[in-house]
């Protein structure tokens, strides 16, 4: 499996010296598919790779630099739009990692700008962003109402000139999910990066990444999320993290994420259970052409993600509505 090759290359970059051409093709295809090519490119020693690989990695590093520059510019624009907003604006995920110079940000692919603001300030933030040129992406009234009633974020907004998306969160999991993270505590403990912008505390950064990976989604892009977690764990105090995870209602998920991160990217000496193994099988379901494998297992996790997000009756109603609108799982 080439996902395994990717994991090994990230864990032990020197191991790529042993790869043959077929191994490199598989590694590059998997790294691109998992959006980890930039991370790989900053970790691998350029001198140790074949001539044909060097420009591929150089391209990936340049792309990552551009991603970072664009992400910081978006953060800067949002900070300007929200300059007079009365409350903290907390950067999350990739943009925060890059803005704070964290290891998780090195070479990272960064998509949307994610910010966390107090729930009471959501309407104000929305108005200020719209005044500064952001617009609605989803025109569908069902989706819009769904977001506003049940999600942990506004429907995504896109900037009409720069074509970049912003996700405005007021907590880190959908309101329908079983765990109820304490967003107020996250905001209260956020640490400043600039005069206007904050990021989550070291422990809350881990909690957020874990909630996203194990208490919410279907593990798509999970290798990258787990790489984030592996890097973020290095800055978190283990005792504080355990207490924090308890408070957010995701203690079991954080413990599992630590086992998984250690299993894939760390020493790999910890014990893993049956459930861990299943998650690992799902995370590594990628072949040497970058194709998704283990379709049934993937579908199982897709179903589970919805199960986690909402109670059964609501789930049935939601899936029926989406089905009627023509949506089909990938």
């Amino acid at each position: 499996m080439s996902a395994a090759l990717l994991v090994r290359a990230l864990r032990d970059p020197a191991s790529v010296a042993a790869l043959n051409a077929a191994g490199w093709n598989a590694l590059i295809a998997a790294a691109r598919a998992e959006r980890l090519i930039g991370t790989l490119a900053v970790r691998v020693d350029e001198g140790a790779v074949p001539d044909a690989v060097r420009p591929i990695l150089a391209d990936a590093r340049r792309d990552a630099e551009r991603e970072a520059r664009q992400a910081l510019w978006e953060a800067d624009r949002a900070a300007l739009a929200l300059a007079d907003f009365d409350g903290p604006v907390v950067l999350m995920k990739g943009t925060a990692y890059v803005a704070a110079g964290l290891r998780a940000g090195d070479g990272r692919f960064i998509g949307d700008l994610d910010i966390l603001v107090p729930r009471a300030g959501m309407d104000d933030v929305e108005q200020r962003l719209i005044a500064a040129g952001w617009e609605w992406v989803k025109e569908d009234p069902y989706d819009d109402a769904y977001y506003r009633q049940w999600m942990h974020e506004l429907p995504p907004l896109i900037h009409r000139e720069r074509d970049r998306m912003i996700d405005v969160h007021h907590t880190i999991l959908p309101l329908t999910a079983r765990p109820r993270p304490d967003a107020d505590a996250m905001l209260a403990d956020a640490v400043p990066i600039t005069e206007r912008l904050y990021m989550l505390s070291a422990e809350d950064r881990v909690c957020h990444a874990v909630a996203h990976l194990l208490a919410d989604g279907d593990l798509a892009g999970g290798l990258r999320n787990l790489w984030d977690i592996y890097c973020l764990l290095a800055d978190a105090d283990p005792a504080k993290l355990a207490a924090r995870a308890e408070r957010h209602g995701i203690a079991a998920q954080v413990r599992q994420a630590r086992r998984l991160a250690d299993g894939l990217y760390g020493t790999g000496r910890g014990r893993v259970g049956m459930w861990d193994r299943l998650v690992l099988r799902r995370l590594l379901a990628r072949d040497g052409w970058g194709r998704e494998t283990r379709k049934l297992l993937r579908f199982g996790f897709y179903l589970r993600s919805h199960w986690l997000r909402m109670p059964p009756l609501m789930l049935a109603r939601h899936l029926l509505t989406k089905w009627r609108k023509g949506h089909r799982p990938a």
Binding site: W24, N25, I28, R32, A52, W289, G290, R291
Partner: peptide, 30 residues
């Protein structure tokens, strides 16, 4: 067997499309 800048994949467009009215989904690294 050389190292490629890009992988291109010509895949069946659906579960049966390899044999039945064969139809190609074009994809790859990008």
């Amino acid at each position: 067997g050389g190292i490629a800048d890009f992988s291109v994949r010509l895949e069946p467009a659906g579960p049966l499309r390899q044999w039945l009215r064969p139809s190609i989904f074009i994809t790859g690294d990008h």
